[in-house]
């Protein structure tokens, strides 16, 4: 795709170089025509729905011009500096472009290109590490040990555990908001070789599977008094730029595909596990629904009760968690330490 004749954001051959939205915003701000159109568009989108906005000629013109600017195909990085600002810029353009009510939304995050197979190799080394491993092994316990022996992992793990199990009052048994924040810090700042081992350890007995289920302190971060409807929960999530982005990323990287061997897009387990972990600490926090060792069932805290005529859509949404072969294969492959070998 050859870019339009605007030099910033392009390499010497005229190909568009992907830039993050914070940088794209700076490039746009340096250009009077771009910055004025962008200002117009943001005013158009503020507090109005897409259809009213597009009915306005000025708004439509602004959107058309911005499609030619580096802002149009900018992306964000997980855990980058100013991640929220980057996502706000991304959605300010993309909410104008899409219906905003699509089932699957494109991920605002850069695609995970590096297949970090090292993590899988590590997992396989660990799983065969202990000599007494076969009979009485508990990989989830081993994962906790590995985390406790690393100062950074131990500090942030203790951080979220103590926050999530701290009682506030007789009626409120923890602060969910603080618990979610501490969980996000853990998953953002601790290398995935530690966090994935805790989250996706493979189990042969129930004690292990229960420990795995307990990883995110579900009594505070996951369970609630009532189970909301999944589509209502999705709407809540979509009002928050971060939650919306993480959900879109999950749909992009974990959507079951029937064209690949592993059922994962591009056979990339790493990307699916990463976007799964990226949902933890938001309204759409997923978890294991029970301590079963034989079947892995994942779900956010919601059900399809009370869906009305949206029942089918709700079930489809929920199945992407509960009956997703890509997600299940990715978790099992990580637990067994077997990444796919793509032979050419």
């Amino acid at each position: 795709l050859a870019g339009p004749p605007s030099p910033p954001g392009q390499d010497p051959h005229g190909w568009r170089v992907p830039v993050d939205c914070v940088r794209a915003n700076e490039l746009c701000a340096a250009e009077p025509s771009c910055s004025s159109r962008y200002r117009t568009l943001r005013q158009c989108l503020a507090g109005r729905d897409r259809n009213t906005m597009l009915a306005n000629k000025e708004c439509q013109a602004a959107l058309e011009v911005l499609q030619e600017s580096p802002l149009y195909d900018c992306r964000c990085k997980r855990g980058m500096k100013k991640e929220l600002q980057c996502l706000q810029i991304y959605w300010s353009i993309h909410l104008g472009l899409t219906e905003g009510e699509e089932f699957y939304e494109a991920s605002p995050y850069e695609p995970v290109t590096s297949r970090l197979s090292d993590i899988f190799r590590l997992a396989s080394i660990f799983s065969g590490m202990d000599p007494a491993t076969n009979s009485k092994s508990n990989h989830c316990l081993d994962a906790a040990k590995a985390c406790n022996l690393n100062d950074n992992c131990k500090r942030l793990r203790s951080g979220y555990i103590s926050t999530c199990s701290k009682e506030i009052s007789a009626t409120e048994h923890c602060s969910r908001r603080k618990c979610h924040k501490a969980l996000r810090q853990f998953f953002d700042r601790v290398p995935s070789e530690y966090t994935y081992r805790l989250l996706f350890c493979s189990c042969k007995d129930q004690a292990c599977a229960e420990r795995r289920r307990q990883t995110i302190v579900p009594s505070c971060s996951y369970e609630d008094k009532e189970k909301p409807n999944c589509l209502d929960l999705r709407n809540t999530c979509r009002t928050d730029h971060l939650c919306r982005s993480r959900l879109a990323d999950f749909h992009t990287n974990c959507q079951a595909s029937f064209q690949s061997l592993t059922s994962c897009p591009g056979d990339n387990y790493q990307a699916c596990l990463g976007s799964y972990a990226g949902l933890i600490g938001f309204d759409m926090t997923p978890n294991y629904v029970d301590a079963s060792t034989t079947s892995i069932t994942i779900s956010p805290w919601c059900s399809c009760k009370g869906s009305g005529n949206m029942e089918e859509e709700c079930e489809k949404f929920l199945r992407d968690f509960t009956e997703n072969p890509c997600l299940r294969n990715a978790i099992q492959a990580f637990g067994n330490g077997t990444d796919v070998n793509l032979s050419p």
């Binding site: 906790a144 406790n148 131990k154 203790s158 103590s162 999530c164 302190v217």
Partner: peptide, 12 residues
């Protein structure tokens, strides 16, 4: 810093 752990009865 503090140390947190899960006990044999699944309490933190």
């Amino acid at each position: 810093d503090d140390v947190s752990f899960l006990d044999a009865y699944n309490r933190y």
